[in-house]
Design a protein around this nucleic acid. Structure first.
Length: 519
RNA sequence: GGCCCCUUCGUCUAGCGGUCUAGGACUCCGGCCUUUCACGCCGGCAACACGGGUUCGAGUCCCGUAGGGGUCACCA
């Protein structure tokens, strides 16, 4: 049997991090066994703008490299992959359910149902529909219709017995049928509801394993009921624990951004992103620029593999020590039986640590390629880039070492691209290192002269020059080094001073020092 | 509230009856390295929810309790 899994997003306009985790597990499970991963759009309830609301989701999948074998934009043998376009199939299923006696036409108004529900609630009993307006034959139908009533189709759930089913993650799960409601599967206008649609689609698309979040666990009995009534073979079910909020066990939700911002780590991540977005002059869409949403990470320069690696370990582990997985390793090692049962909290810091490590391992060439678009977006480099871009940028990225944690961090070093007469000086640094210390101006002036005379303007020789200078003047290294840094970069922190100077070159260093002295 | 699910350091987790004075990772706290920052290195704090069983022996099995969560739509 070929393994076929699916992820069924509803077109909401954004890709949620919890959703991606679910999708990832589906993708890994199917692809790891040579099966297929299908994307299906659950848009039974959405009428407008499905394409627009779906675009960011598909974009997110593409960015992450989670490719789908069948689904929107790629098509497939079971097309269409939009539920809104599959109404005829659901209609046929609803009729089959009726014919099989597993469903009935119900002529109750919503008010009448509501009244029964409230009554049960007041008596603190479980609500069970009286089936008072259930039409059992054509005569009933005629009678109710004569009263001007409209009908929906409801499931005729068993009122006794239990369902025992095996979940790949949770093991044996038991449900009392009597606890289940006569759910509506088709509205009066003929449109069908999610539960029917899912079952029909999963069958039609030959889904072998339904891997989804735990919140669907209690939906499973009614879906099994429908599948059984329709004579479908059952897929395997695996209910994943959901992804929880940072620092709590509540389900992670896009809507609680305000609350999450009270979490220090979460706020820090968002701030980091914002500082990058600001320098890119990015228009921040508060709905989407949120660490709960995948788009956020793309915009500020995360590595997709790092996000995936982190998400993989959120509820799954291989053993007691392996944390880093390449895509190939994930595919080879993933298995459902090592998925945890308890929800896992989203930890922004750990995510960041994965990103950090992935970035450190990235070959210099790729790092440069990742960083370039950010400089272009910030207006530092033209698009297309001039031909001397790569060597210069490579030097910068090399010198930056591990300081660039996410691609957008390159914007911390924009001063390599600002014209010498435009360089802005950090006031605090200027005061502390140049204006205030007694000898700073004199030393800086003298050191500038040394620089002007250096034969080779490169890291090693510059360092030697400075050392000699320090010895000659009988000063401490700190007395000159900081002043030079501030003069040359405008900032108090940065990477190796000699590398920095070598990258800038003699002329620019001299010009910048001169300008700093004039401040 | 009913039903269902879950419960090891702050967080992600290892652990499938003895090798657990409970291991790893992130965070945090010391220290080292160092021209700043970052990296790196060394060290440290820190957990089996509780109570009963079963067993020679329980973090591991069973039953309760407590706590947390999910779900109860003509949403998906």
């Amino acid at each position: 049997m070929t393994v076929r899994t699916r992820f069924a997003p509803s077109p909401t306009g954004y890709l949620h991090i919890g959703g991606v985790r679910t999708a990832l597990f589906n993708w890994l499970f199917a692809k790891g066994q040579g099966g297929q991963f299908i994307l299906r759009v659950d848009d039974t309830d959405q009428q407008r703008n499905v394409e627009a609301a779906l675009a960011p989701i598909l974009h997110g999948f593409r960015w992450l490299g989670l490719d789908w074998d069948e689904g929107p934009e790629v098509g497939g043998p079971r097309a269409p992959y939009y539920q809104s376009q599959r109404a005829d199939k659901y209609q046929a299923a609803a009729e089959a359910l009726l014919a099989a006696g597993a469903a009935y036409r119900d002529f109750a108004s919503t008010e009448e149902i509501q009244a029964e529900r409230e009554q049960a609630q007041q008596a603190s009993e479980q609500f069970t529909y009286s089936r008072r307006w259930m039409a059992e034959n054509d005569a009933d139908i005629a009678k109710f219709e004569a009263e001007g009533r409209q009908c929906v189709v409801r499931l005729k759930m068993p009122r006794e017995g239990e369902l025992v089913h095996h979940d790949l993650i949770r093991g044996e799960v038991r449900f009392q049928w009597a606890r289940e409601q006569d759910h509506v599967v088709q509205r009066a206008d003929g449109s069908c509801l999610y539960h029917l649609a899912t079952v029909v689609d999963d069958q039609d698309m030959q889904i072998s394993h339904v891997i989804r979040a735990e919140e669907h666990l209690s939906n499973t009995p009614r879906q099994i009921f429908i599948a059984n009534a329709l004579g479908y073979p059952l897929p395997e079910f695996a209910h994943l624990p959901y992804v929880a909020e940072p620092g709590s066990k509540n389900k992670l939700s896009k809507r609680k951004l305000e609350k999450y911002l009270k979490n220090r780590d979460f706020a820090q991540l968002k701030q980091h992103g914002e500082s990058i977005a600001e320098r890119l002059n990015l228009e921040i869409d508060a709905e989407v620029f949120n660490p709960v949403i995948v788009d956020f990470y793309e915009q500020i320069g995360f590595l997709p593999d790092a996000l995936l690696n982190y998400l993989l370990l959120l509820g799954w582990s291989l053993d007691d020590h392996t944390e880093e997985f390449s895509r190939e390793e994930m595919l080879a090692q993933f298995s459902l039986d090592r998925v945890n049962k308890a929800p896992a909290s989203f930890d922004p810091q750990k995510l960041f640590a994965f990103q950090d490590r992935a970035m450190q391992k990235l070959p210099i060439k790729q790092k440069v390629a990742r960083v370039l678009p950010f400089l272009q977006q910030a207006g530092a480099i033209a698009d297309p880039p001039p031909c001397d871009t790569a060597p210069y940028l490579t030097k910068i990225v090399e010198a930056a070492g591990d300081r660039i944690k996410i691609a957008g961090d390159i914007l911390d070093y924009l001063d390599f691209y600002t014209a010498d007469d435009q360089l802005e000086y950090d006031e605090k640094a200027l005061n502390k290192r140049i204006r205030k210390p007694d000898d700073a101006v004199r030393l800086l002036t003298e050191f500038r002269e040394k620089l002007a005379a250096v034969e080779q303007f490169e890291g090693e020789s510059l360092e030697a020059t400075l050392k000699t200078f320090v010895e000659e003047k009988e000063i401490k290294i700190g007395q000159i080094v900081h002043a030079v840094r501030v003069a040359v970069t405008g900032k108090a922190v940065g990477f190796g001073l000699f590398e920095t100077m070598a990258i800038l070159g003699r002329e620019r260093c001299l010009a910048r020092i001169e300008r700093a002295l004039a401040q």
